[in-house]
Simulated assay, not measured.
Amino acid sequence: MTADEDGDRPVVIEVEGATKTFVQRRRVTRRGLRRERLDVHAVRDVSFTVRAGEMVGYLGPNGAGKSTTIKMPIGILTPTTGRLRVAGLDPARQRLALARRIGVVFGQRSTLWWDLPLRDSFELVRHLYRVPADRYRANLDRFVDLLDLGPFLATPVRQLSLGQRMRGDLTAAFLHDPAIVYLDEPTIGLDVVSKAAVRSFLAETNREHGTTIMLTTHDTADIEQLCRRVLVIDHGRLGFDGDLATLRDRLGGDRMLIVDLPGPVPPVSVTTPGARVVRVDGPRQWLSFPATASAAPLIAEVAARYPVVDLSIREPAIEDVITRLYTSGPIPTARQPTTPTDHSNASAVGEP
């Protein structure tokens, strides 16, 4: 989706100046035994908007405020200060109406019925959301195919593997055709095959049905494969909002030119500014160069001096980029807040 296409879509999630403060009381022995009030600021003045059809990654270290931020537009938590609108509704005051328009998946908790066969859990979801029978059958058939649910539809949820249960939770969250889906660690603990199935399902659902998805995860591969836009929060403050490529550019780091030669040779000699050989393994050599620089001059120099068999470029690892952001402090946001002009009329828990 291009920037112009983004601008043509209605805003479906609007968070403006959201702050969430929790009150804790602890015992202190100073001047006698008493309780002292302690204000914990989980989220501080967070603002962002999400347009219909976006798939947005939400990143941050443990305790950064990710889950607290996600719970406010779901309606589980009420902001201490600030304004939220989701699908044209106030999440805290119109939670029941909003629940029919959203889906939620928390990777470490299940919304399925533990002792029922998976198919019966889906039937209960159908009745809870009052999904028409024909639409339910069509959706379920599609999800069974996309997520390969057929072999264990008759299996009680408690007997499912983690990967099977997660595919069941995803189906339950999407069965009623929600306009917006919040996913908190949807691939946690899954094997490679299950992760691939979940990612493929999310990408296709977003692409084919325009479902807006907010994805919170510690697995940066989820972000790289699914999300063009990322929000990064740390210590309760939004440190970045923009394209993944822009995040890489702003935080620097190195790209890698991997060169395959006909045979082993000493480290190649180059004069391109900032370029250097960092590894040699037989006929293959790795040359790092600044992430903000064009690869063309370095490629041209290497090709002119050496008989190149093959070469490729590796972008900075997103894990390294995020780590640099956490340790360097907030950087200016890459995206200006959007002033909403339209709203589309388009269940769960976690920790602060």
Results as ranks from 00 to 15, higher is better:
182 Y>D: 02
263 G>A: 04
298 L>S: 05
256 M>I: 13
266 P>Y: 09
286 W>D: 00
273 P>V: 01
271 T>I: 01
301 E>G: 10
224 E>A: 04
248 R>P: 12
236 G>M: 05
242 G>C: 00
225 Q>R: 15
208 E>F: 06
275 A>M: 06
252 G>F: 10
300 A>Y: 13
297 P>S: 07
278 V>S: 10
229 R>K: 14
314 R>W: 05
228 R>C: 02
175 L>K: 15
188 I>P: 08
272 T>H: 05
215 L>Q: 04
245 A>M: 07
181 V>E: 08
236 G>C: 02
201 F>M: 08
269 S>A: 11
282 G>N: 07
313 I>D: 00
295 A>H: 14
190 L>Y: 09
259 V>E: 03
183 L>R: 14
187 T>E: 03
249 D>L: 09
280 V>W: 12
185 E>T: 10
202 L>N: 07
314 R>E: 00
280 V>P: 07
285 Q>W: 03
267 P>W: 10
239 G>T: 13
302 V>R: 12
228 R>D: 11
303 A>S: 11
259 V>M: 08
213 I>N: 11
314 R>A: 11
298 L>Y: 06
255 R>I: 00
299 I>M: 03
300 A>L: 12
262 P>W: 02
236 G>Y: 09
256 M>P: 02
299 I>S: 01
267 P>Q: 04
249 D>H: 15
191 D>I: 00
291 A>K: 09
263 G>R: 15
279 R>M: 02
199 R>M: 05
225 Q>F: 13
268 V>K: 10
235 H>G: 10
257 L>P: 01
287 L>Y: 07
308 V>R: 10
201 F>I: 08
311 L>S: 06
277 V>E: 01
183 L>P: 06
260 D>V: 09
278 V>P: 03
295 A>V: 03
287 L>K: 12
205 T>G: 12
185 E>H: 05
250 R>Y: 11
265 V>G: 05
262 P>K: 09
304 A>N: 04
224 E>M: 05
